[in-house]
Simulated scan of single mutants.
Amino acid sequence: MQTPYPFVPDGKIAYIRQIDVANLPQDIRAQVPSGAEVWGVHNHEGECLALTQDRSTAFFVARENDLEPVSAH
């Protein structure tokens, strides 16, 4: 994927998006409370790096790992 943010060095962008719990592996789904939201932090290639319980925490996790977070849909 070509990063559409020229001011961010390659490999330093994190895409934040909400994850459908039904698409998670069974062992992870079992840990998610009923009705809870799950947000993913993804690298520039789409690989999920982390799961969080809300959007603001996902942005925080990205920044704490020297990544520049942006919303993805």
Score class of each variant (00 low, 15 high):
residue 9 P to D: 00
residue 23 N to D: 13
residue 33 P to V: 07
residue 38 V to R: 07
residue 4 P to D: 06
residue 34 S to G: 08
residue 54 D to W: 01
residue 28 I to E: 09
residue 14 A to R: 07
residue 3 T to A: 05
residue 45 E to A: 11
residue 12 K to F: 00
residue 29 R to S: 07
residue 24 L to F: 03
residue 2 Q to K: 14
residue 5 Y to F: 15
residue 56 S to F: 02
residue 44 H to A: 14
residue 42 H to Y: 13
residue 29 R to C: 07
residue 22 A to G: 12
residue 28 I to G: 06
residue 25 P to M: 02
residue 6 P to T: 10
residue 4 P to F: 01
residue 67 L to F: 09
residue 41 V to I: 04
residue 8 V to L: 07
residue 33 P to C: 08
residue 41 V to W: 01
residue 25 P to S: 02
residue 40 G to Y: 01
residue 6 P to M: 07
residue 10 D to I: 05
residue 57 T to Y: 00
residue 48 C to I: 13
residue 67 L to T: 13
residue 57 T to L: 11
residue 51 L to A: 09
residue 15 Y to W: 13
residue 33 P to Q: 03
residue 49 L to A: 09
residue 5 Y to G: 04
residue 45 E to F: 11
residue 12 K to D: 00
residue 40 G to W: 03
residue 30 A to C: 04
residue 55 R to T: 04
residue 15 Y to T: 06
residue 1 M to H: 09
residue 31 Q to R: 15
residue 33 P to R: 08
residue 61 V to L: 02
residue 69 P to Y: 01
residue 7 F to I: 10
residue 21 V to G: 08
residue 3 T to S: 15
residue 26 Q to I: 04
residue 8 V to T: 15
residue 3 T to R: 10
residue 14 A to F: 01
residue 51 L to Q: 01
residue 63 R to F: 00
residue 22 A to W: 02
residue 35 G to L: 05
residue 2 Q to E: 15
residue 54 D to H: 12
residue 49 L to K: 09
residue 64 E to Y: 06
residue 60 F to A: 15
residue 14 A to S: 13
residue 55 R to Y: 06
residue 22 A to K: 15
residue 50 A to W: 11
residue 36 A to F: 02
residue 70 V to S: 10
residue 11 G to M: 06
residue 36 A to Y: 03
residue 27 D to V: 12
residue 21 V to P: 09
residue 60 F to L: 15
residue 37 E to Q: 13
residue 63 R to V: 04
residue 10 D to R: 12
residue 15 Y to M: 06
residue 16 I to C: 03
residue 73 H to L: 09
residue 34 S to E: 15
residue 67 L to G: 12
residue 60 F to I: 13
residue 14 A to Y: 04
residue 56 S to D: 14
residue 62 A to E: 08
residue 19 I to Y: 06
residue 60 F to W: 13
residue 38 V to D: 07
residue 33 P to H: 02
residue 29 R to W: 01
residue 49 L to D: 01
residue 56 S to M: 11
residue 21 V to N: 11
residue 63 R to L: 04
residue 37 E to K: 14
residue 49 L to F: 06
residue 37 E to C: 00
residue 69 P to W: 00
residue 26 Q to Y: 01
residue 32 V to F: 08
residue 9 P to V: 03
residue 67 L to W: 11
residue 11 G to N: 05
residue 44 H to T: 14
residue 9 P to N: 06
residue 60 F to T: 15
